[in-house]
Amino acid sequence: MNDTPAIRVVVCEDQAVVRAGFVTILSAQADIDVVGEAADGRSAVAVAQRLEPDVVVMDVRMPLLDGIEATRRLAGPGARAPLTVLVVTTFNVDEYVYEALRAGASGFLLKDARPSELADAVRHVARGEALLAPSVTRSLVGRFAERVRPDPGARSPERERLGALTTREYEVFLLVGQGLSNAEIAARLVVSPETVKTYVSRMLTKLDLRDRVQAVILGYRTGVLDGPGDRRTE
């Protein structure tokens, strides 16, 4: 018997048929519990703040308040208790990805994904793993981060924070920044996936980051993910 609590999810989608489909797909999973729904952005914020789910599934285009702004209020820097948001949209548009990441989203998935991919996406972001739709390349995160890259000559408090990491934690940080999964990192470092999971958890905690998306963006913002010559600066 599995005693792990089910992942609590709120589904935010203005189209009733699509919303019902998402709820049906997710409710059919033994490890996922849909605890709330919303049909517009304002309701999404209110329902999510009241229920505090593990994951908010958020559409981009919604009435009253768009999904990007709703995500910002729930997961952005100003959120009093940041939530994990998975943005699901019909549109594979770079700008939506940029703005979703900027707003604090932990994942981005297209609505044409298979039912199993939606459920897996919820599981991924609930575990704190960044997720982009397979058709949305990892380089998009880098291109987004280019917009917020600081002056390389300036002292960066964010870069100084990296000094709190051990050498192995920093290695894991760089590999996470390159978009590698736990299994891929484990193979690269010749350790077990569970060991990598521990390093990732410690790294995120020390850097006060919510998930891998934030780690990738931090890597670009601090300049340590400039390219093949990435290295630790003491």
Results as ranks from 00 to 15, higher is better:
residue 3 D to T: 15
residue 52 E to A: 15
residue 106 S to H: 07
residue 126 A to W: 04
residue 7 I to A: 04
residue 129 E to T: 15
residue 152 P to F: 03
residue 153 G to L: 10
residue 84 T to D: 06
residue 18 V to P: 03
residue 168 R to Q: 09
residue 189 L to Q: 02
residue 165 L to N: 01
residue 9 V to Q: 03
residue 115 P to S: 08
residue 112 D to Q: 08
residue 1 M to Y: 14
residue 157 P to G: 11
residue 190 V to Q: 07
residue 204 L to D: 06
residue 43 S to F: 05
residue 36 G to H: 01
residue 143 R to L: 14
residue 138 R to W: 07
residue 206 K to N: 12
residue 108 F to L: 12
residue 185 I to V: 13
residue 130 A to P: 10
residue 158 E to Q: 07
residue 90 T to W: 06
residue 89 T to V: 02
residue 213 V to C: 08
residue 79 A to N: 03
residue 178 Q to K: 15
residue 165 L to G: 10
residue 110 L to S: 05
residue 220 Y to N: 13
residue 56 V to H: 01
residue 53 P to E: 00
residue 191 V to N: 00
residue 111 K to S: 11
residue 71 T to D: 01
residue 222 T to E: 03
residue 181 S to A: 15
residue 98 Y to I: 02
residue 17 V to K: 07
residue 3 D to G: 14
residue 230 D to P: 13
residue 118 L to M: 08
residue 139 S to N: 15
residue 203 M to K: 03
residue 147 R to L: 14
residue 146 E to V: 10
residue 214 Q to Y: 04
residue 166 T to Q: 06
residue 218 L to N: 03
residue 145 A to Y: 00
residue 41 G to C: 10
residue 86 L to D: 01
residue 129 E to Q: 07
residue 94 D to S: 14
residue 3 D to E: 15
residue 75 A to I: 01
residue 170 Y to E: 06
residue 194 E to F: 13
residue 16 A to H: 10
